[in-house]
Design a binder for these strands. Structure first.
Length: 420
DNA sequence: TCTGGGGTCCTAGGACCC
DNA sequence: TCTGGGGTCCTAGGACCC
């Protein structure tokens, strides 16, 4: 048996843990750049605030109901997430961290009463972190997703824990679940299923295997089996190696100046290269892309990307930065107002698998020591304390908008919560 | 002032070559 | 002159997730 544990309205709940004055009041959290509403607590959801819609389009509603608004504070959420995962790992032999606010657990075989086990998970996470979680328990991962959804819908009855352990419950849940809400079935696939007259998860499981295999590939077939209660997906306890790592963020303002865009890009490269080193990989390819603001059709539009093949795979920030700059030079066109720049690293391999360049073998041992020192310092004193000169000193001119940021309660001593 | 997410993987189709 | 399959590599865009 598996359990899926997810934190209710994770970002909003993290903010509320440190603000008892907001308990019972509507709270929302914004996307990067304070653009869209991406999380809302139960009180805010009750106001029908639309998710993934720009904040300014809902300004009236926010004001009228005195909704408290936060910029996203990822250091805080990341830290709270780690605490939740550590708490959960005390109650299970095996745990898969599925996302920042969700984990799949193996239910210990000694647990006889699954409802009681679910309540125990909830209680301990709440005691140790202050966060409310829901629990879905079922024989397959896909079914735990279904159960978790039921736990939310039937909050009062089941007290945030829902168990699918027998055939009658499984069938009843699937008959109730619209097919577009099944984990792994998105907008496009559900359209195709609707066209065939399939509207519930149950109807999906009644389709012939051959059709599912042909139309939705092995992925669809695996999902069908999972919903039937036949496990196809194991827990991924150590996450599989990534195929690519990257970042792309919008600027606080649209930018025309190449120098500023270059600075932002160098900053993102440093972030991504550090992730790369942490995963003990080197990158063989680097992609740079650049975009204007597509929501301003009155502005001239331009978007482009370029892939650079590196002569020797590397994890060295200055070197990657150099290639990123070269990529930007190639695709930058003056006269546009740019909104976003991004960098992706791919062709990731272990450093030991790298073949040195035949005519220019320069392993640069001192360079990798420098990177190690840089990572340690930045870990200790904050992101980009030590950085390459190309990352510049004008961050104020391009950085994300974060006007409603909460303090770093858990990761910075100066901003720790004071009681009294 | 002026607002519009971020991350990862997959697939279709084109270019090129044998 | 016209026809043929099949492989690799690359890229753009699609799809899904939270």
């Amino acid at each position: 048996m598996y359990a899926l544990v997810d934190v209710n309205s994770f970002y909003a709940s993290c903010e509320q843990v440190f603000r008892p004055d907001l308990w019972g009041k509507p709270v929302v959290v914004l996307s990067n750049n304070d653009g869209c509403i991406i999380a809302a607590n139960a009180e805010a959801k009750a106001l029908d605030l639309p998710m993934w819609k720009p904040l300014f389009q809902n300004a009236d509603l926010i004001k009228k109901h005195q909704v408290t608004v936060f910029s996203s504070n990822y250091p805080l959420y990341g830290d709270m997430s780690q605490r939740v995962m550590e708490t959960l790992s005390t109650l299970t032999p095996a745990l898969e961290v599925y996302s920042i606010d969700e984990a799949f657990l193996e239910v210990p075989e000694t647990e006889k009463d699954l409802q009681v086990y679910g309540q125990q998970l909830r209680k301990r996470v709440h005691q140790w972190t202050g966060l409310p979680v829901g629990v879905g328990i079922a024989p397959t991962k896909a079914l735990t997703k279904v159960a978790s959804r039921m736990a939310k819908q039937h909050r009062d009855r089941s007290r945030n824990v829902f168990v699918i352990a027998d055939e009658a419950t499984r069938v009843a849940c699937l008959k109730e679940l619209p097919v577009e809400n099944v984990w792994g079935i998105g907008r496009k696939i559900s359209q195709r299923l609707h066209a065939r007259g399939i509207h519930t998860a149950w109807e999906f499981t009644q389709l012939p295997d051959v059709w599912v295999r042909k139309e939705l590939s092995v992925v669809g077939l695996r999902l069908k089996r999972e919903l039937e209660g036949i496990p196809q997906l194991d827990l991924e306890i150590s996450p599989p190696a990534k195929q690519m790592i990257g970042t792309a963020k919008s600027f606080g303002h649209n930018l025309e100046d190449k120098g500023l865009i270059q600075e932002a890009l160098a900053w993102y490269v440093a972030e991504v290269a550090m992730k790369l080193r942490r995963q003990q990989r080197v990158a063989g390819k680097l992609t740079v892309f650049l975009e204007t603001n597509r929501f301003r059709p009155e502005d001239p539009q331009y978007t482009n990307q370029v892939v650079l093949k590196l002569p020797v795979p590397t994890d060295d920030t200055p070197e990657l930065s150099h290639y990123a700059k070269e990529g930007l030079e190639r695709i930058f066109r003056p006269g546009y107002r740019y909104k976003k720049v991004g960098v992706w690293l791919s062709g990731l391999v272990r450093p030991t698998a790298v073949q040195q360049h035949l005519f220019d073998p320069d392993p640069q041992p001192r360079r990798s020591q420098l990177m190690q020192v840089m990572d340690e310092l930045n870990q200790k004193y904050g992101k980009a304390t030590l950085r390459t000169a190309s990352a510049g000193f004008r961050r104020e001119e391009w950085k994300l908008r974060q006007e409603q940021l909460s303090p770093r309660y858990t990761t910075c001593f100066d901003e720790i919560l004071q009681v009294g």
